[in-house]
Simulated scan of single mutants.
Amino acid sequence: MIRKASIMYVYKDKYEEYQRCHDELWPEMEKELKEHGAHNYSIFLDEESGQLFAYLEIEDEERWNQMASTDICQKWWTYMEPLMETNPDNSPVSKELKSVFYLA
């Protein structure tokens, strides 16, 4: 398993809506994530800053990278765009984090 972590940003007035969207994650989005090798996917919120910390484990980097080009992912990004900082293609502004410690 490959462990990945990143930081994204949700607008402060959109916390509840962001939570609701993930509580009601589309079944087809969940299916696609799993088909692209995602496991143990968690997102945490710092309510003071609006910073999101995302952690997931993937099976294969190349397979995971193909997720972004799927129709369902593109649809999800468009759906989430009003709630968070995004790039011109509606993907979340995201900064990948470097692993510096791991205790199995």
Rank of each mutant, 00 (worst) to 15 (best):
M1T: 04
I2Q: 01
K4M: 08
K4W: 02
K4P: 03
K4V: 08
K4T: 05
A5W: 02
S6R: 05
I7L: 12
Y9C: 05
Y9F: 08
D13V: 03
D13G: 05
K14H: 01
K14W: 02
K14D: 03
Y15I: 05
Y15E: 00
E16I: 09
E17T: 12
E17R: 12
Y18S: 01
C21V: 08
H22D: 00
H22N: 08
E24A: 14
L25T: 14
W26G: 00
W26R: 13
W26L: 13
P27T: 05
P27F: 02
P27V: 08
E28R: 11
E30D: 11
K31S: 08
L33W: 00
L33P: 00
E35D: 12
H36T: 07
H36Y: 03
A38F: 15
A38H: 12
H39V: 07
N40G: 13
Y41S: 07
S42W: 09
S42C: 10
I43Y: 03
F44R: 03
L45M: 08
L45A: 04
D46V: 03
G50V: 00
Q51H: 09
L52S: 09
L52C: 09
F53W: 09
F53M: 13
E57H: 00
I58V: 15
I58M: 12
D60W: 04
E61N: 07
E61M: 11
E62S: 09
R63H: 06
R63K: 15
N65V: 02
M67P: 02
M67I: 12
M67H: 08
M67E: 03
A68K: 10
A68D: 11
A68G: 12
S69R: 06
D71N: 13
I72G: 11
K75D: 15
T78H: 08
T78K: 15
E81A: 15
E81P: 02
E81V: 05
P82I: 05
L83D: 04
M84N: 05
E85M: 11
E85T: 04
E85V: 10
T86V: 15
T86E: 01
P88H: 04
N90F: 11
S91R: 12
P92M: 07
S94N: 14
S94M: 15
E96S: 12
E96W: 12
E96G: 11
E96D: 13
K98T: 14
S99A: 15
Y102Q: 07
Y102L: 01
Y102T: 07
L103M: 15
A104N: 14
A104S: 14
